[in-house]
């Protein structure tokens, strides 16, 4: 059987179970709401304004960008890793050049202080 068809069957089954779980409380649980109950939890105080539009450190954004760089690097390494015995020393040299450039990149962002959290 085509593995992707099997994957589809799996996905359908898992999706169904997850959906049933999701609505379980709606079906089984009782509902007795009040205005205070539907407030956002802020240690018991009345919530101050909305979260939308508030700011948060740009560091998280930078981390995400660095992640994309290195994650794509690793994705490029997989095809080489599978075929590296056939490619031999030639493939290793090519990959060493590629990894060397990224190692320099890592050294640079390290030096610039992109990895510091203060």
């Amino acid at each position: 059987m085509n593995p992707y068809a099997a994957l589809l069957i799996n996905a359908a089954l898992c999706g169904l179970v997850a959906t049933i779980l999701l609505f379980m409380s709606r079906i089984l649980g009782r509902r007795r709401g009040s205005k205070v109950k539907y407030e956002i939890f802020e240690t018991g105080n009345p919530p101050i304004g909305s979260l939308r539009g508030t700011r948060f450190p740009v560091k998280f954004y930078l981390t995400a960008i660095l992640f994309i760089i290195f994650d794509i690097e690793i994705v490029f390494m997989y095809p080489w890793a599978v075929a590296y015995r056939e490619l031999g020393w030639f493939g290793l040299a090519e990959m060493a050049a590629f990894m060397g450039i990224l190692a320099v990149g890592l050294a640079y962002i390290w030096r610039v202080g992109a990895l510091e959290w203060n």
């Binding site: 997850a18 649980g29 407030e39 956002i40």
Partner: peptide, 25 residues
């Protein structure tokens, strides 16, 4: 499973429902 299901009034209702499903699936 038998506890009350609470969606905060200020929350984005659709995404609030979607998130647990996306986490577990």
């Amino acid at each position: 499973l038998t506890k009350e299901d609470i969606v905060p009034a200020a929350a984005d209702r659709f995404l609030h429902w979607l998130a647990p499903w996306v986490a577990v699936f």
